[in-house]
């Protein structure tokens, strides 16, 4: 982790839909190679905040710079420099593994030769070389998930946003997935991740917890547990999230 290089920076970032303030003046900064856990209950405003940080939604107020670009005025440049993976994997079921990788490489403007070399590297890392010409639909869920992550970082973005990447997956597969996250972070990729699994919150370098559109706590898991006199991140989360006033 490189603490001198801030790659995500938000100041008073706000999004209102009519009279409803989905994201309410959030301020945070994330540094290069950090694993940042972005927690909150359903409806706390995480997805809206994440969409703004990815350049997909314009802030109503406040500013944010991601990978050095302003999310409001340089959204296209933000998109080129980030990777994104949602719980609904962005893989095409009817394409083979190789075709999926080629498609994403093409979308991000990678050269054919580059795509070819990278495809080999990725499949070796995932131990999935034999699946090269298999249709994605036929793969086990855990493999699809690892592949979806590799696609999100295929164009070597500085930052990857993961929106509940491990939802509904069994305990072993979840842990294998986190090993990929660790490896990416160790290569200097910044990981911004949401999850409902509180053991996964412990795997993050720092964690923020959103309640009613605002960030109520932001620190390392160890210091949060200390502050809230809690044995686990589950207890920290519960103590904060149950104070929520607004419904979903």
């Amino acid at each position: 982790m490189n603490r001198d290089n801030i790659v995500i920076e938000a100041h008073g970032l706000t999004k209102r839909f009519g009279t409803f303030t989905a994201t309410d003046h959030i301020t945070l900064s994330v540094c290069e190679g950090e694993i940042f856990g972005f927690l909150g209950a359903n409806g706390a405003g995480k997805t809206t905040a994440m969409r703004m940080l990815c350049g997909l939604s314009k802030p109503t107020a406040g500013t944010a710079r991601v990978a050095g670009y302003d999310v409001a005025t340089e959204a296209e440049k933000v998109k080129r420099n980030i990777g994104y993976m949602s719980q609904k994997f962005s893989l095409y079921d009817d394409l083979t593994v190789a075709e999926n990788l080629r498609l994403f490489g093409g979308i991000y403007g990678m050269k054919r030769s580059e795509v070819k070399a990278k495809t080999r590297d990725v499949l070796v890392e995932l131990d999935m070389v034999a699946t090269l010409n298999q249709r994605v639909a036929a793969l086990p869920l855990g493999w699809k998930q690892k592949l979806a992550f590799s696609l999100a970082v295929f164009h070597e973005p500085k930052i990857v946003f993961l929106d509940e990447p491990t939802g509904g997956v069994d305990p072993v597969t979840r842990r294998r997935f986190w090993e990929l996250i660790y490896r990416a972070a160790d290569r200097g990729v910044t990981v911004f991740v949401t999850t409902h699994y509180m053991d996964e919150a412990e795997y993050c370098d720092r964690v923020s917890i959103m309640v009613d559109g605002q960030i109520r706590a932001l620190d390392t898991p160890a210091r949060l547990k200390e502050t809230y006199h809690a044995a686990s991140m589950y207890d920290v989360f519960y103590a904060l999230a149950r104070t929520a006033r607004r419904g979903e």
């Binding site: 909150g40 209950a41 359903n42 939802g167 509904g168 409902h196 989360f237 519960y238 999230a241």
Partner: peptide, 11 residues
Amino acid sequence: EPTTGVDPVSR
């Protein structure tokens, strides 16, 4: 799987 994707408080 009634609580997949559901936050800890709601679960």
